[in-house]
Amino acid sequence: MNLDKIDLNLLVYLDVLLRERNVTRSASLLGITQPAMSNGLRRLRDTFSDPLLVRTGEGMAPTERAQALQPLLRQILSSVEQVIEPSSAFDASSSDRVFRIMTSDYGEATLLPRLLKRLRKEAPDIVLDILTPSDMSFTEVEQGLVDLVINRFDTMPQSFHQKTLWRDSFSCLFAVDNPISHDFSLETYLQAKHVWVSKTGMGAGMGITPKDVKRLGWVDEALEKSGHKRQIRVFTRHYQSAALIAEQKGLIATIPTRAATAQSNNPRLVIKPPPFDIPDFELKMAWSPLLQHNVAHQWLRNLIADVTKA
Rank of each mutant, 00 (worst) to 15 (best):
V295I: 10
I84P: 05
S104W: 00
I278F: 11
I130V: 10
G107E: 01
L290M: 09
R258Y: 10
M206I: 15
L14Y: 04
S185P: 01
Q162C: 03
G207N: 13
T103R: 00
S264P: 08
R45C: 06
M102F: 02
L3S: 14
L44V: 02
Q82T: 12
G31V: 01
G57E: 13
I130H: 04
A243C: 11
A192V: 05
I271V: 09
W299C: 07
G250P: 10
E85P: 08
S79C: 14
K199M: 14
P35W: 01
K193M: 09
L145N: 08
T200V: 09
F99K: 02
S241H: 12
R233L: 12
K309F: 15
D15W: 06
D280L: 14
L69P: 02
R215M: 07
L30N: 00
R233N: 12
H238N: 15
E187R: 10
T56S: 08
M102R: 03
V197R: 04
I150R: 02
E81Y: 12
A262N: 10
G205V: 11
I6W: 06
P113M: 09
T132C: 11
A253P: 04
R74F: 10
I84L: 11
D183A: 04
D4I: 13
W166Q: 02
H161W: 02
P86N: 06
E140F: 04
R45G: 05
P179R: 01
L53P: 03
L14H: 03
S38I: 07
P275R: 11
A259T: 09
F184P: 05
M156I: 06
L73Y: 04
E142W: 07
G207L: 13
L119D: 00
F184D: 03
S181L: 02
E108M: 04
G107Q: 02
L119Y: 02
S87Q: 05
Q75L: 14
E122L: 07
L223C: 05
S198V: 04
L3D: 14
N22D: 10
G227D: 12
F276H: 13
A222P: 02
S79R: 15
D280A: 15
R74V: 01
A286M: 15
K309A: 15
A310Y: 08
I255F: 12
V83E: 06
G227R: 10
T164F: 07
Q82D: 14
L131H: 11
L186V: 05
K309G: 14
I150K: 04
D277Q: 15
G203K: 05
E81C: 14
